[in-house]
């Protein structure tokens, strides 16, 4: 399998002086389901956002599907971004637009301005958007404003939006942290399915080891901006867990 993501000696120092990422080297193979573990503030979100340059890295190199991300500008960067679907803890949908419009925004990277303003006139786009909504089981919610949907439904709309990009990679920044355990598992199931049947590479930050064991093929743990563990989920025992989360941490089961 080829490496779809290559990160070399990545650093991020924020303007206020916080050194969030301290020299990370990481290769991710196509089709992997990577779980990012680590305390809040360990650099998980920063790392994910450096991959599509929502945050500008300070130094280092990133290659996505062989393309240089750091050097990319303008249209080149936008072409790289559309290969990478992103899912957020707070869903980040546009609350007073309908689900279908939110899903259609996933197509923006492929569309000209005029085209994107006339999405409803383009049958093939509408059809793809509806297909993606049905894929996450929300076809009948197409015309509902996303503000009226539950948290789990919103996250599924967000997944449909990411699918619209036809991505090779999905970055998920604590996608289930605002959801109840049952909903969390169903959202993770959708991500798992994309990984298995569409061969999308997933990098997903989480706090629950049980979910990591169930869905992850690889676990990477961050602490203070450095990788402190890189292996399979099975290899994380209690000792490793305490190394990652600190001496006082206890594993919490969620099913």
């Amino acid at each position: 399998m080829k490496n779809i993501i290559e990160i070399k000696n990545l650093h991020k120092i924020y303007a206020k002086g916080t050194h969030a990422i301290k020299g990370i080297n990481l290769d991710v193979k196509e089709g992997e389901f990577c779980i990012l573990l680590g305390l809040s503030g360990s650099g998980k979100s920063t790392l994910l956002r450096c991959l599509n340059r929502l945050i500008e890295p300070t130094s280092g190199e990133i290659y996505i599907d062989g393309e240089d991300v750091i050097g990319a500008k303008g249209q080149k960067l936008r072409y790289i971004r559309r290969k990478i679907g992103m899912i957020f803890q707070q869903f980040n949908l546009i609350q007073n637009l309908s689900s279908i419009t939110n899903v259609l925004t996933g197509k923006l990277g492929y569309s000209t301005l005029i085209h994107s303003l006339t999405f409803p006139q383009h049958k093939e786009d509408m059809k793809t958007a509806l297909d993606n909504l049905s894929r996450v089981g929300l076809k009948e919610f197409a015309d509902k404003k996303t503000r009226n949907l539950s948290g789990g439904q919103q996250q599924r709309v967000a997944i449909a939006r990411a699918l619209m990009q036809n991505p090779k990679i999905i970055l998920a920044d604590e996608p289930v942290a605002s959801l109840d355990p049952a909903t969390a598992d169903s959202v993770m199931q959708y991500l798992g399915e994309l990984n298995k049947s569409d061969n999308m590479t997933v990098i997903c930050s989480l706090h629950f080891l049980s979910l990591a064991r169930k869905y992850g093929s690889r676990v990477i743990a961050l602490k203070d901006g450095k990788i402190v563990f890189d292996g399979t989920p099975k290899e994380i025992d209690e000792k490793r867990f305490k190394e990652i989360y600190g001496e006082d941490a206890e594993e919490v089961e969620i099913r």
Binding site: R82, N92, L93
Partner: peptide
Amino acid sequence: PGPVEAIKATGAN
């Protein structure tokens, strides 16, 4: 700022 981030991430200009 969340939706702005999300829309940017889709490759929108």
